[in-house]
Design a binder for these strands. Structure first.
Length: 498
RNA sequence: GGCGGCGUAGCCAAGAGGCUAAGGCAGUGGUCUGCAAAACCAUUAUUCAUCGGUUCGAUUCCGAUCGCCGCCUCCA
């Protein structure tokens, strides 16, 4: 329930506050696009009030690029939206620290595997922090769950879903009838060997995938191997995710998410492994975010058009600006990255900051505006309705900008009282639990800064422009910009650290 | 070849069978201002890739065409 600063008598009679109960309930449901059904579905967790959530994590062998960042910002968006609805989210995200890439990378870097991957994991966590991504409950690592993976292979062998060949264990796709349902792939029409050098494998059927890979000589020498009844092996990516997801969240999780490019074959294989064992769906809702492009082409290190978050930070952009840019396109649409786009996000964000800053700096003594409270309520309603509609951030931002346009002129002439001001800030705060892009904290005036601002004001009153400009220059040296408004000066930091 | 997706103003981006096709950025005009910077206000698509069809009515549904993107069991 909304707390109305003036007691709300005036507004309680408006239609905003008297919607029929039923439609209100209906509106509050969260609709998510489920890849499995290719439709928006009402989200209902298995256990009331609780959500189990798994997100395919990064491989610890390269610095996170924007495509990866987007994936986790979307997963953060989902988590935060669920939490804003009062649900407790059990979120897990894995680290793939044991696979061809990490082993090859460590080899090339001349480092022990663990030391090599730990470096990337630490860098990744740093990136998530700068992007304002909430921490998951757990971050399982593939290398620390190998016994469970070997156990899965054993069980699949027992159930007749897997076979051994030359020391490697493969999953027999022909035994799993539901294979391909999530991605809608028709195995008989697939072009074999399109991206795989089939000569490297000894599978019965090229469509089968690896569960455990026989260790190579090089791996044995480095101690990267795990003993099993079939000899020394290491697990494949697919069995890793399957094991870590079910181990932490049970046979069926509410939501499994990652980006589109993992849909096939990875998620299909993950499902085959898990469901062959349990007979239960691996996840009730599959959510896939779209890719990040550069000039219309998929961003990847292979394509040579990689842009990392760290590179953007080096260029002076903030994590917040990157987050805002990545958030501003619907998650199921590709996002074409460009610096122009990032600059646009920066400008838009600056305008939002300007608003909250002015709101915070507003001198007391304003008079209540008759319509503002209704504007705020409308914005909040529209915003959360947009989020409930498959996380439509663009639409939600539209509600915010519309609000801004109505309220700015009011703010401009200080026609807001204290209660209205805090009502706006509280509402933005609620929306910010999802967006995490607003700067809502007040402008605490450091005494020396305050003194300078006062000195400048005195000088301006006395029309001593030279002294006024000196004070402004002094403030600039401290990284403070003063903006003169009809309500007096407003100040802000040139660059907010975050 | 198979599967999936996209094409809305200079750029970005929502939308949905019929109410003025949200909003952002840039542009233009104005207000404010000692200067400066910023900000605020106003304004910018007879039209939604093209061509057909369904319909009283489609940009929204269906079909075709053109263009672009992703995936097709290396790895992630």
């Amino acid at each position: 329930m909304v707390i109305l600063p003036d007691g709300g008598e005036r507004y309680l009679s408006t239609p905003l506050f008297t919607p029929p109960k039923k439609t209100e309930e209906k509106k509050k449901q969260l609709w998510l696009f489920n890849t499995r059904s290719k439709k928006k579905e009402v989200f209902t967790p298995q256990k009331e009030g609780q959500v189990t959530f798994y997100s395919c994590g990064p491989t610890a062998f390269e610095v996170a690029n924007l495509a990866l960042c987007r994936r986790f910002i979307v997963s953060d968006l989902i988590t935060r939206t669920l939490e804003a609805k009062g649900l407790a989210v059990d979120a897990y995200m894995n680290f793939t620290d044991l696979d061809d890439n990490t082993i090859a990378g460590a080899e090339k870097a001349g480092k022990p595997l663990r030391e090599y991957t730990e470096g990337f994991i630490a860098g990744f966590m740093e990136d998530m922090e700068t992007l304002g991504v909430k921490r998951a409950k757990g971050y399982p690592k593939a290398s620390e769950n190998v016994q469970a993976m070997i156990g899965i292979a054993r069980e699949l062998m027992d159930k007749g879903y897997a076979y051994e060949k030359h020391g490697s264990i493969y999953f027999d796709i022909s035994k799993f009838k539901k294979y391909g349902r999530l991605s809608g792939i028709d195995l008989s029409k697939i072009q074999l060997g399109k991206t795989v050098d089939l000569d490297d494998y000894e599978k019965d059927n090229p469509r089968d995938f690896t569960l455990l890979k026989r260790s190579t000589l090089g791996e044995l020498k480095k101690g990267i191997f795990f003993e099993s009844e079939w000899g020394n092996v290491r697990p494949s990516w697919h069995v890793e995710c399957s094991a870590m997801a079910t181990r932490n969240l049970g046979p069926t999780m509410d939501i499994h998410t990652a980006s589109r490019n993992l849909l096939f074959p990875h998620h299909e294989n993950e499902i085959a492994i898990a469901e062959a064992l349990t007979g239960k769906p691996l996840a009730n809702y599959w959510l896939h975010s779209e890719l990040v492009l550069v000039d219309g082409k998929n961003m990847s290190s292979d394509a040579g058009n990689n842009v990392t978050l760290k590179e953007l930070l080096r260029r002076g952009y903030t994590g917040r600006e990157v987050r805002f840019m990545l958030l501003s396109v619907h998650y199921r649409k590709p996002l074409d990255f460009s610096y122009r786009r990032l600059d646009t996000a920066r400008t838009a964000l600056r305008r939002l900051d300007e608003f909250t800053c002015k709101l915070n700096c507003l001198p007391p003594g304003g008079r209540p505006h008759p319509e503002v409270t209704a504007f705020v309520t409308a914005m909040e309603e529209q915003f959360f309705a947009a989020m409930d509609d498959d996380l439509n951030v663009s639409k939600g931002m539209g509600a915010i900008y519309n609000f801004l346009r109505k309220v700015y002129p009011v703010l401009q002439v200080n026609n807001l009282d204290r209660d209205q001001r805090s009502y706006i800030l509280e509402t933005l705060g609620r929306m910010n639990t999802i967006l995490n892009i607003f700067h809502l904290q007040g402008c605490p005036l450091a005494p020396d800064v305050n003194a300078l601002i006062q000195r400048r004001e005195q000088a301006r009153l006395a029309k001593d422009w030279q002294a006024a400009d000196e004070a402004r220059a002094e403030l600039a040296r401290k990284g403070i910009v003063v903006i003169d408004t009809v309500n007096g000066p407003v100040w802000k930091r040139v660059r907010d650290a975050e």
